[in-house]
Design a protein around this nucleic acid. Structure first.
Lengths: 153, 153
DNA sequence: CTTGACTGTCAGGCAGACTGACTAAATACC
DNA sequence: GGTATTTAGTCAGTCTGCCTGACAGTCAAG
């Protein structure tokens, strides 16, 4: 039996908890992103790969840097990088200044995937704006940004 | 150097992706919820326990029902229920109508935890309303609800 | 009363991320 | 310059959360 995730008919009485709403909205956006990336030929991209695509510098970054920025351990991000390397999105090149280090760089395909992801995310927001009104999506973003800035010290 | 995850200054147009904002906001709310629950004496409550507290009926529910509503398997939700049972938040009682089944019911402490969680979530929204304006938090909730209703087919 | 469906549990497995231990290289100390 | 400490990345092992598969007991339809 396939269990469809908690779909209540109409909300019984009380409010759906805000964290649930935030999670569902995130899941919808992320699912759409990955599906459309796959449609455009960028396959095998998983959620955690965003830790590399979002945080890697234009000239590449070290593993340790990616680990710090993403909040994952070196080991964890190292495995992610290896996976992206196998898929041809990044490459490890020697650092000429420090022979311990390797620079993780996007390949051409990796750069295309990064650009495509950014465009798709922009497009998702744009489509939401069409349905809900541009001001409401802009307000959503601003509210979230303020909220986070407010609470994260 | 402690790198706070992806805090770009105010730059060009390098927007933080919307899924990231949604995730961060969710994490903030959930962390606050669990911390305040612990402060009020409800200890050992983890994220996944919400699958029980949110979906359990007033007279209790069967394991299979909780599994369907939460989207987890029977085995997974069964483990969650066992953990909550060890902590004294729920109990398994025989179903008088069906000797295969057990009714999972909140204990008094479980009910208190459920009520406390709901109050805390309401309070979190209320505090956000104080900082950001009540209309913006209301709008946030409405926008998310519409968004989800829109996209989840 | 036999057959099939359902309830909950036990067992085993896999994926993701963690801690710990290690080598090679850079840097600081004296 | 020589030694000690720190740093970069990797290998190994573990833990957690969730999954699939298999099962005994019970219910329900023919």
């Amino acid at each position: 039996m396939t269990t469809r995730s908690g779909k209540r008919g109409k909300d019984d009485e009380g409010n759906v908890p805000l964290p649930t709403l935030l999670t569902q909205a995130k899941d919808i956006a992320v699912d759409k992103l990955h599906q459309r990336l796959a449609d455009e030929g960028f396959e095998g991209i998983r959620y955690v790969h965003g830790s590399v695509f979002r945080f890697i510098g234009p000239e590449g970054s070290r593993l340790t840097t990616l680990a710090e920025r993403s909040g994952l351990t070196k080991q964890a991000i190292g495995e992610v990088v290896s996976e992206l390397e196998r898929h041809g999105y990044v490459e490890r090149v020697a650092d000429s200044d420090d022979r311990r280090a390797k620079i993780i760089r996007l390949t051409d395909q990796g750069t295309m995937a990064q650009v495509a992801a950014a465009q798709i995310l922009t497009d998702i927001e744009w489509r939401w704006s069409l349905s809900l009104g541009q001001d409401r999506v802009t307000t959503l973003r601003r509210t979230l940004e303020e909220l986070i800035g407010l609470e994260s010290d």
